[in-house]
């Protein structure tokens, strides 16, 4: 019972993260700021939702597979985000007009 409530809270938080990211993608108006918002889904959103699912399932093969998916997501999606921003910076000479870039 407690586990299920905890899992529900985690999945709910994950969904809130996804909603925030989605709002961010629509609200921001430039690539670099947009991918910054969208990356929330791939990292925090998936982490919270998968943690909730693992709590619901208990330890076992299913949760091991979920962990594998999480590892794959965490390896790949930051890299793709990084590549998109790199391409934008390489191809757009006045990228720093739209937002501050350090």
């Amino acid at each position: 019972m407690i586990l299920e409530i905890l899992a529900a809270v985690l999945i709910g938080l994950g969904l809130i993260c996804c909603c925030i990211a989605m709002f961010g993608v629509y609200r921001m108006d430039y690539v670099l700021t947009r991918i910054h918002a969208a990356a929330i889904i791939d990292t925090l959103g998936t982490l919270l939702i998968f943690a909730g699912m693992i709590l619901l399932r208990g330890l076992g093969w299913a949760s091991a597979k979920i962990l594998l998916i999480l590892a794959f997501q965490w390896l790949t999606s930051p890299v793709s985000t990084h590549r998109i921003s790199k391409v934008e910076i390489l191809s757009n000479p006045d990228y720093d007009k739209h937002c501050e870039v350090e």
């Binding site: 790949t76 990084h82 390489l90």
Partner: peptide
């Protein structure tokens, strides 16, 4: 020149999988 270190390392890890 721009050959990306991050993408290269991650691909080395993920490619066999």
């Amino acid at each position: 020149e721009e050959r990306n270190q991050i993408l290269g390392h991650i691909t080395t890890v993920l490619m066999p999988v």
